[in-house]
Design a protein around this nucleic acid. Sequence first.
DNA 1: TAACTATACGGAGGATCCCTCCGTTTTGCA
DNA 2: TGCAAAACGGAGGGATCCTCCGTATAGTTA
Lengths: 218, 218
Amino acid sequence: MAKRADGGRGEAGPAKRADGGRGQAGPAKRADARRNYERLLVAAGQAFAEHGADDVSLEEIARRAGVGIGTLYRHFPSRQALLEAVYADQVEGLEVLAGKLLTAESPGDAVAEWLHALVTFGRTKRSLSAALVEMIGRDSELLSACGATLRRCSTAVVQRAQDAGVVRADVQGTDLLRLTHGLILASDAGAGEAGQTERMLRLVIDGLLTGGSAEPAS
Amino acid sequence: MAKRADGGRGEAGPAKRADGGRGQAGPAKRADARRNYERLLVAAGQAFAEHGADDVSLEEIARRAGVGIGTLYRHFPSRQALLEAVYADQVEGLEVLAGKLLTAESPGDAVAEWLHALVTFGRTKRSLSAALVEMIGRDSELLSACGATLRRCSTAVVQRAQDAGVVRADVQGTDLLRLTHGLILASDAGAGEAGQTERMLRLVIDGLLTGGSAEPAS
DNA sequence: TAACTATACGGAGGATCCCTCCGTTTTGCA
DNA sequence: TGCAAAACGGAGGGATCCTCCGTATAGTTA
């Protein structure tokens, strides 16, 4: 537990937002730079999800991404920066997904899919959490901004399903965030076998649907 | 940010309680072993408090304690084990303090001193927290046992002050734990200058005292 | 299309760190 | 005093981190 990272006095600074590669300011990055940036983000996301954010060497991430270690460090000056970027990227991905779900055919299925996405995201986030805790307080603007985004998306998806009458009226968007959070904690505390969370998740979804509150399916 | 510790596949095991050196079972340790054990505990406690539990190399701790790295590893097979031992030791120290406070002259001052101790402890604990999080779920019996001890001590100290009529009756021992917890979070989130927590702490103490609830000192 | 330059790439290398292993030293006891 | 078990201590193998700088490439201009 609590592996990786040493070298110590690396300062790391406020991790200047890492800007990404997409848009915003800057003198426009070169094409290969943007490509490598994306590759690193993907590789890091996978690696973190598999081994935990603290048990992956940056050199392995660079290897997976097919770039040199120097390239990784140019894009992400510190492990923190990479962590933040992965986190922000995933939240952005969720935001995009929410956008699609808001125009999906079935608002009910949209909620289910949204929950699935939240759980998947939450699992990764949890593996990041130990490391993310470190940046709370220092750069918590990023975290709070991402939190706000998630709340907004979740509320919108739920709202639409409620308007369509398929989800109970007394459910709040933020409830989903809490539910998934608890669900993840529960499922990896209870030595859960695979599929365990899947079952619980379905249970939750059934509970959210209108009319499903009287008789729990035995 | 999430430094230290690597080497990877070190397993580390359930960190077999590290037993300490004082009493309990075992074929009685040799004098020098017990002495070095204590030195390491002290050195680790200081080092963790100064640089954070993840930013101190075990070799530095050994150096501070004036022992070889091998000795450190014999006493504490893993960083986790050392962390746990330091934590348990500090809780034990608090327990002893509480015992003394229960026979102190002024029950009111005792509460104040108890709060101070809790804050000091909490600060260290916070620096340990990132690492301790890792062991929650795996070996949470230690944590829950320590938590119970703290609650018990806190309740006793408060109770005595209430019996003496110097602390409001609607205060619970566990309130102090929550208060200090919140106070610490607040003080290192708000870029607090030194003395900031001191001020807040006095404020809290004033609030606990009987009769102090009417006019907040301007 | 060819030449040119700012930008990006890549990985060797120095500095730590972790943890094990084993020869040497110390302690407790007969 | 002599001895064996227990403890000490640090060298060394393996792995990471992060920097530095020569080389390759994308974009641009003639």
